[in-house]
């Protein structure tokens, strides 16, 4: 691409709904959506054959896809839980609420913490060794301490999810600041920035790509820890539901809870990704030009 002629772009790229429809159209012309659909059915088909079709050893104790889907969509469920029962939504709501609180606290604390650690050498020297020592401790090892520290059932569970998520967010944010090219700092100083300008205009936006990669991992880790915590010491929530169903030998409900976890987990990651893309238009547009 040369820049000799003045490049007057008369046709603007579509935005909003037009853009969405255009993207959908393009995507339907590629093999991707068909392969994805085929892939899903392939897996469900295998699951069906193993469990309900051929009833292979080890698989024959599990609830099969037909049984699970029938129960899930049953307005009058045999085992007492489906898309039509309020109890199902209670569990989903409780887990989502916990994740929301934990993720909000972890992000609210972890992002500024990581930014300051990356920005100030002194602050990093104070805090990095502690972070690196606490970070590898598996979240389940924190369970007794959480129960000792916090009364009730709700707070320890949220605490554990927050903690796991916090470490991931902080570390990724810190790495994000480290990843910023030194020349941007030089350019900013050259242009007459004061330290707070550098922080707001270079450190924060420069670290954003890493922050959002971190947030996607962190929300996954939050779900992981939440379910583990709910299984150990919970009341309500999808993790609790899985253990409860296992204890009561209602295996269908167990699988329903697992599938629901998969779905809400995927949805929450997608929301984080959408938020990231909205905040980083500069990156989205540059990547789009590279065909990504």
């Amino acid at each position: 691409m040369t820049d000799t002629t003045s490049t007057t772009q008369t046709k603007k790229p579509p935005t909003g709904l037009t853009r969405t429809i255009y993207d959908w159209g393009t995507s339907l012309k590629s093999p991707t959506p068909y392969l994805m659909t085929f892939g899903i059915f392939l897996w469900i088909g295998a699951y069906y054959l193993f469990v309900e079709g051929w009833e292979l050893p080890r698989f024959n104790k599990l609830p099969g896809p037909v049984e699970v889907i029938t129960e899930f969509l049953n307005p009058d469920p045999d085992w007492g839980m489906s898309l039509f029962t309020a109890e199902f939504y209670d569990h989903v709501f409780v887990s989502c609420r916990r994740i929301l609180i934990a993720f909000a606290i972890a992000t609210g604390v972890g992002v500024p913490l990581g930014l300051f650690m990356g920005w100030s050498k002194t602050f990093r020297d104070y805090s990095f060794p502690i972070l690196e020592t606490l970070r590898p401790i598996p979240i389940l090892a924190w369970v007794p301490l959480a129960i000792l520290m916090f009364s009730g059932l709700e707070t320890p569970v949220i605490y554990l999810a927050t903690l796991a998520s916090l470490f991931v967010t902080t570390l990724n944010t810190l790495l994000g600041v480290d990843s910023i090219d030194e020349e941007y700092f030089r350019a900013a100083n050259c242009l007459g920035s004061k330290p707070h300008h550098v922080f707001m205009h270079i450190v924060v936006p420069g670290a954003l790509p890493f922050i959002f990669t971190g947030l996607q991992i962190s929300i996954g880790v939050a779900w992981f820890s939440l379910v583990a915590a709910e299984m150990v010491s919970g009341e309500f929530g999808l993790g609790y539901l899985i253990v409860d169903a296992y204890m009561n030998i209602t295996y269908v409900i167990m699988v329903i809870a697992m599938l629901t976890l998969g779905f809400v987990g995927w949805l929450s990651s997608a929301l984080v990704r959408i938020a990231g893309n909205r905040l980083m238009q500069w990156r989205v547009r540059a990547l789009a030009l590279e065909g990504r």
């Binding site: 020349e183 030089r186 350019a187 270079i202 954003l208 980083m280 500069w282 990156r283």
Partner: peptide, 20 residues
């Protein structure tokens, strides 16, 4: 001291990618 009286144009370019 770094200052705006001496402006540097860098080898690899240092426009802030997050600003238009």
């Amino acid at each position: 001291n770094q200052g705006a009286d001496r402006m540097v144009v860098f080898q690899h370019g240092a426009l802030f990618p997050w600003k238009t």
